[in-house]
């Protein structure tokens, strides 16, 4: 090995396709999102209302099937503005920067939702602010049917 010398190398490119099953709880949730409706699933033991919905409460180790409505407005619990483009893990395209990101506790949920924030006026981003979802017109039943959240005055 010669630390001063770069070895012969090979460059590879791949274009691949994957297909993932959603699971019953994620399917129900996303069909609701496509209809402009948000739901959480509540644990019958600890009472925690989970968003995203999921088949089990990992803490209580029980199945979840008690659905409860969640508002599309809530409280901003954390925020940042990211100044680097981010790779979209679905398309391989880059999401341009800067963009706002928040943790939002929607009214009716106990977990927080990570989602994009409207950064037209970054000075309005403060922990505790009330925020509301801005929905896409042509919804497809995916998390980005919500474009981002905007701060309410």
């Amino acid at each position: 090995m010669d630390a001063d010398r770069d070895l012969l190398s090979v460059s590879l490119e791949m274009d691949l396709e994957w297909r993932y099953a959603s699971g019953e709880s994620m399917e129900r949730f996303l069909l609701g999102v496509g209809a402009g409706r948000l739901e959480a699933v509540r644990c019958g033991v600890c009472g925690r209302r989970y968003l995203p919905p999921r088949p089990f409460c990992g803490v209580c180790r029980v199945r979840l099937d008690d659905w409860v409505p969640v508002a599309d407005a809530g409280t901003l619990e954390a925020w940042t503005v990211v100044h680097l483009p981010i790779l979209d893990g679905r398309t391989g395209e880059m999401r341009p920067s800067p963009y706002g990101m928040g943790l939002i506790r929607l009214d009716g949920a106990d977990t927080t939702l990570n989602h994009y924030l409207d950064t037209a006026d970054p000075s309005r981003l403060t922990i505790g602010s009330r925020v509301r979802a801005v929905w896409r017109e042509d919804r497809r039943g995916a998390m980005d049917d919500i474009l981002h959240f905007e701060v309410l005055s």
């Binding site: 994957w18 993932y20 959603s22 994620m26 996303l30 995203p52 619990e77 954390a78 925020w79 940042t80 990211v82 680097l84 981010i86 790779l87 979209d88 893990g89 679905r90 999401r95 963009y99 990101m101 928040g102 943790l103 990570n114 989602h115 994009y116 922990i127 995916a142 998390m143 980005d144």
Partner: peptide, 22 residues
């Protein structure tokens, strides 16, 4: 997660920054 986190990604950097703000 292909249904949730990929649609609203901010990477390790964005996730860390969120927690730091708190």
């Amino acid at each position: 997660d292909p249904f949730w986190d990929r649609a609203v990604a901010s990477g390790a950097l964005g996730n860390f920054a969120l927690s730091i703000s708190q």
